[in-house]
């Protein structure tokens, strides 16, 4: 495992820690999109089906279980926790995420990694992850003020995929030497979706101002 990959995984993990910290300490999920969180549950469940069929390492198994467990926990807090669910910004979380699911599924049927149930679902999870942040970005744009934890959460989530891009470049030259269209293009799209957010996040950080996205 190279340093980009490890940094990417740790950034991903940290983003989840930040979000859980916000939910558990402030008892609030204001500014967080339940729809994006639902999409992540679906992404992890469909991608990590190979937990039953393939073994790579203890690290790999542990991280997969952590990602599935924490995404379900976040979903549970936002949907069912007596206090937390009342802070959910339901009216602002208006993105039609079912369209994303349907679109990604059709794409995965047309352009799968391989023609089998698990491979189509794996491809689906890659496509869906690329666009899963959209409901969250739309919600942020509609929010008047974005609290620090929410801003940091989204930043870390974007940084994770950007680091994976470096990991893929590194692996291409040192190890795999194969073009991997599906993850590469999806990863590029996924990272590009954050470009706008990154810009305003860094600006607000440099000017020591509150983060705000223009409508």
């Amino acid at each position: 495992m190279n340093v980009f990959r490890l940094a990417g995984d740790m950034t991903h993990l940290l983003s989840i820690v930040v979000l859980l910290l916000k939910i558990r300490t402030t008892k609030s999920c204001a500014g967080i999109s339940l729809k994006t969180q639902e999409l992540y549950v679906l992404v992890f469940l469909t991608r990590y089906l190979d937990l039953f069929t393939r073994y790579f390492s203890v690290y790999n198994v542990l991280m997969k279980l952590i990602f599935i467990g924490t995404s379900v926990a976040i979903f549970w807090y936002m949907r069912y926790h007596k206090v937390v669910k009342q802070t959910y910004s339901k009216d602002l979380d208006s993105f039609r995420h079912y369209h994303l699911i349907l679109g990604c599924f059709l794409m995965a049927l047309l352009i799968p990694f391989d023609f089998s149930v698990t491979e189509v679902l794996w491809t689906f999870s890659i496509y869906l992850e690329a666009v899963a942040i959209l409901p969250q970005l739309v919600l942020l744009q509609k929010s008047r003020n974005i609290d620090n934890l929410t801003g940091n959460y989204v930043f870390l989530l974007g940084a994770y995929r950007a680091l994976y891009l470096l990991n893929w470049i590194y692996r291409f030259f040192t190890e795999i030497h194969k073009i991997r269209w599906i993850p590469w293009i999806s990863g590029l799209v996924q990272t590009a979706l954050y470009a706008d957010f990154f810009y305003y996040y860094i600006q607000s950080w440099r000017k020591h101002e509150e983060l705000k996205l223009p409508a």
Binding site: D9, H12, F56, N60, K64, E119, W122, I176, P183
Partner: peptide, 10 residues
């Protein structure tokens, strides 16, 4: 195999 080391990523 077709899947190779691609799938060791998260």
């Amino acid at each position: 195999p077709k899947t190779g080391s691609v799938k060791d990523e998260l």
